[in-house]
Amino acid sequence: MNDTDNQPGPAGGGNGARVLRIRDLVKSFGERRILDGISLDVSQGEVLVVIGPSGCGKSTLLRCLNGLEPIDSGEIELKGEVITRPGTDWNRVRQRVGMVFQNYELFPHLNVLGNVLLGPVKVQRRKRPEAERDALSWLERVGLADRASSFPRQLSGGQKQRVAIVRALTMSPEIMLFDEVTASLDPEMVREVLDVMLGLARQGLTMIIVTHEMAFARAVADRIIFMDEGAIVEQSAPDGFFESPESERARRFLNIFEFSEKRRE
């Protein structure tokens, strides 16, 4: 299974090589069990969208995948390597698992290029000129080439999130995690960020996306994971999920969405 590991998968779906394997993942905060036995496989080039009500554990799941939250039990495998054993070098794992958060978490004291280069230069010890070329070409691809020397406070929310995406991408991660990256954005800026993500999906980047943007979820996903109360309730192809969800809970969740969509109009 390893011979295809470095090849991007075909657009619009995984090609079978497994990037991530999660088994029986359990995580509690005090008495509260947030993740109650999650098992999940993600293959190369696959785009997974995780949806579910607030507090269902979807953000915690992502945070466990790059070690920002220690897990209680279970196992996570990244390209065949178990990363949940004691003594795992998370700093090394995190270079392979890119993450973008809901809140703009750019470093305010560095300009756009400084933000983007911190990982490649300080963590991966790449040569600065070469890393800079790479960074600039990524910035150009997300339409921000002219903002390389701007500081975060001079950018809009949507621009900041695009920089945050580029910052994670320049580490050449094997999988990207997006944690409600448009949830804090003004509505008119959501689109530019989603377009970037859609582009990445088309290029075959392996991604797990937590979002509340249902139309986007349907457009970008190869597979929808519906979570509730710390467990995966349903997983299916996007069209099937949105048109005829199997579980009662998913139906109820989507109904709530429909209602709020209608009320907004």
Partner: peptide
Amino acid sequence: AHQRESGRALGLTGRQ
């Protein structure tokens, strides 16, 4: 807190 966290998410060590 998320400033530290996003640094860690990039793979920076605690000292970095």
